[in-house]
Nucleic acid binder design. Structure first.
Length: 407
RNA sequence: GGGUAGGUUGCAGAGCGGCCAAAUGCAUCAGACUGUAAAUCUGACGACUAAUGUCUUCGGAGGUUCGAAUCCUUCCCUACCCA
C-alpha cells in the first residue's frame, strides 16, 4: 500500500479536530505506517441503541472516512454488549435492556445509514460482545485492579453528577472500562470520538499501556449544536438533522439554524474545500451580505451529501414555493374521503393534522388553519368536502382532500 | 442498618386541606414582524365540550374528611450524613 507522505496526511487529519492526544505520537504512527506500508487501525465506537444517525454523528464519521480515503483501516465497533447492559446516559430512566436480536437489527440500520458516509465495503464491523461476552469475573477483577475509583470518577460527567447529587449506577463506572477494553482487543492505533468521549477514549489508551500494548492516539471532534443553536444535537431534544431525513427536512431544518452556526456546519458537516471555506468565512463576515444566502448554500450542500445534486435543486425550489412565494407545494399528503360534510375539528384530528381536538380548537382560534388560502376561525365550522381542497395548518402542514365517489 | 431531605403536568421548580388543571422560568406550538435566523410583541400549552361545565392527573396502594397535590397508614424509588 502506498500512502501519502506523513506530513500531508497529518495536516489533513488535523482539520476540524479539537484535540489530538498526543499529536507527535500520531505523526510518528503515520510515519511508521508510511514506511512499513501498513495501515493504521482507526476505531470508532457506536452505540446501537439509537440507530437514527444525524449530522452530528456524521462529524466523526466524516473524519473516519477521511482516514479511510488515506488508506487506513476503518473499524466500527458496535457496542452491543454494552447496550445489552443498558445505556447509562439517561439520568433517570433506565432503558429497557436490548435483546441480541435488537442489537443486530439496530447495528444493521446503523451501517445502512453510515454507508451514506463511509465506504462500507472497506469498513470492518465488529460487535464488542465478541470479546466482552467471554470475560470472566476473574478477568474482570484483573482489569479493574488496574484502575482506581478516583481515576474513573475524575470524569466530568461523574464529577458533575456527584456535585448535583444525581445518581451514578455502578455499571456506568464499567462503561469506560469496557470501551477501553475494546481498544485493547482490536489493537486500535487511533480512536475517534466527540469531545464527550475524551475520557472514555483515554481509558482505552491507559488500558493498552497497562497490558503492554502500543497506545492509541485519541482524536476528539467538536460536538455539533443542534438546530436550536445551544444544545448538543440529539434526537431526543428534537434539534437534530437526520441523515435519513427527507431532503426538504434536511434543507428546512438547516434554514432554521442560528446564523452563528453556519460556518461551523460548513466545516464539520460538508466536504467543501479549504479555499471554499475561506470564501464562505469572508462572505459571512461581510455585513453587506445576507447570511440567509450562505445558509441556503449550506442546505444545498447537505442535501447533496445525503442525496444528490438534482434533488438538492428540486428541494430548494420547493422551499421557495412554500416559504418565499407562500404557495402550496406539489407534493403533499392526501386524504381520501367519502363524506360530504364533516366538522372541521374532526377532520383535522382524524387526518392527523392535529393530535387532539383541543389542539385543533386552539389552532383554529389562533388563526393557524386555512383552506385553499382562506383562514378558518370558527371552531364549530362544518366543512363541505370538495375534491382537491387543501388544508393548511401552521407553517408547514398540508393536506389535500381526495373525494371518493360513493356508489 | 440508623438518621435527614425528597419524589408535582416535557424539564426545572412553587404549592403544603377548599380560590389548584396546579405559580414562575425554560422548552414547545400558533399569530405579528422576518431570512422557517436572532431579537421583540401577543396568545396557547391534560382531555372532552358551542358554551356553562365534566372527567383524568401531583411516585403506587389504601384511609381520614363535605372536600386532599396538600393530613394519616403502608409500599416503592432517590440523594445526603453516620455505620
Amino acid at each position: 500500500m502506498n500512502f501519502a507522505p506523513a506530513k500531508e496526511q497529518f495536516d489533513l487529519v488535523k482539520r476540524g479536530t479539537v484535540e489530538i492526544i498526543p499529536e507527535e505520537e500520531l505523526f510518528r504512527k503515520l510515519e511508521v505506517s508510511v514506511k512499513s506500508g501498513k495501515p493504521l487501525n482507526i476505531k470508532l465506537g457506536c452505540d446501537p441503541s439509537r440507530p437514527d444517525l444525524h449530522i452530528g454523528h456524521a462529524v466523526v464519521l466524516n473524519k473516519l472516512r477521511q482516514f479511510q480515503e488515506l488508506g487506513h483501516n476503518a473499524i466500527l465497533i458496535v457496542g452491543d454488549y454494552t447496550a445489552m447492559i443498558g445505556d447509562p446516559s439517561g439520568k433517570k430512566k433506565t432503558r429497557p435492556q436490548l435483546t441480541f436480536e435488537e442489537t443486530r437489527e439496530f447495528g444493521k440500520s446503523y451501517f445502512e445509514q453510515a454507508g451514506k458516509i463511509l465506504d462500507i465495503s472497506k469498513t470492518r464491523i465488529l460487535y464488542n460482545s465478541e470479546w466482552l461476552a467471554g470475560i470472566t469475573l476473574k478477568d474482570l477483577i484483573g482489569i479493574l485492579s488496574k484502575f482506581t475509583v478516583q481515576r474513573i470518577l475524575e470524569r466530568d460527567d461523574f464529577t458533575n453528577r456527584l456535585k448535583e447529587q444525581t445518581e451514578i449506577s455502578l455499571h456506568e463506572i464499567l462503561y469506560p472500562i469496557m470501551q477501553g477494553y475494546d481498544s485493547f482487543a482490536i489493537d486500535a492505533d487511533v480512536e475517534l470520538g466527540g469531545t464527550d468521549q475524551k475520557f472514555n477514549n483515554l481509558v482505552g489508551r491507559d488500558m493498552q499501556k497497562r497490558f503492554g500494548k502500543d497506545q492509541q492516539v485519541v482524536i476528539t471532534m467538536p460536538l455539533l449544536e443542534g438546530t436550536d443553536g445551544s444544545e448538543k444535537m440529539s434526537k431526543s431534544l428534537d434539534n437534530a438533522i437526520g441523515i435519513s431525513d427527507l431532503p426538504k427536512d434536511i434543507f428546512g431544518k438547516t434554514m432554521s439554524i442560528p446564523d452563528t452556526l453556519i460556518y461551523k456546519y460548513f466545516v464539520l458537516c460538508t466536504n467543501v474545500s479549504a479555499e471554499e471555506l475561506k470564501d464562505i468565512k469572508l462572505t459571512l463576515e461581510d455585513e453587506n451580505n445576507n447570511p440567509r444566502d450562505m445558509k441556503r448554500k449550506l442546505g444545498v450542500e447537505l442535501v447533496k451529501m445525503y442525496y444528490d445534486e438534482e434533488t438538492a435543486l428540486r428541494t430548494i425550489e420547493e422551499f421557495d414555493t412554500i416559504f418565499i412565494k407562500k404557495e402550496i407545494p406539489d407534493d403533499i399528503p392526501e386524504l381520501e374521503m367519502t363524506e360530504n360534510s364533516v366538522r372541521l375539528i374532526d377532520l383535522l384530528t382524524n387526518s392527523g393534522l392535529t393530535d387532539t381536538k383541543s389542539n385543533a380548537r386552539r389552532l383554529i382560534e389562533q388563526g393557524a388553519v386555512n383552506v385553499n388560502g382562506t383562514k378558518l376561525t370558527d371552531i364549530n365550522q362544518i366543512m363541505e368536502i370538495q375534491h382537491g381542497m387543501i388544508f393548511k395548518v401552521g407553517k408547514r402542514k398540508f393536506l389535500k382532500i381526495i373525494k371518493q365517489q360513493t356508489n
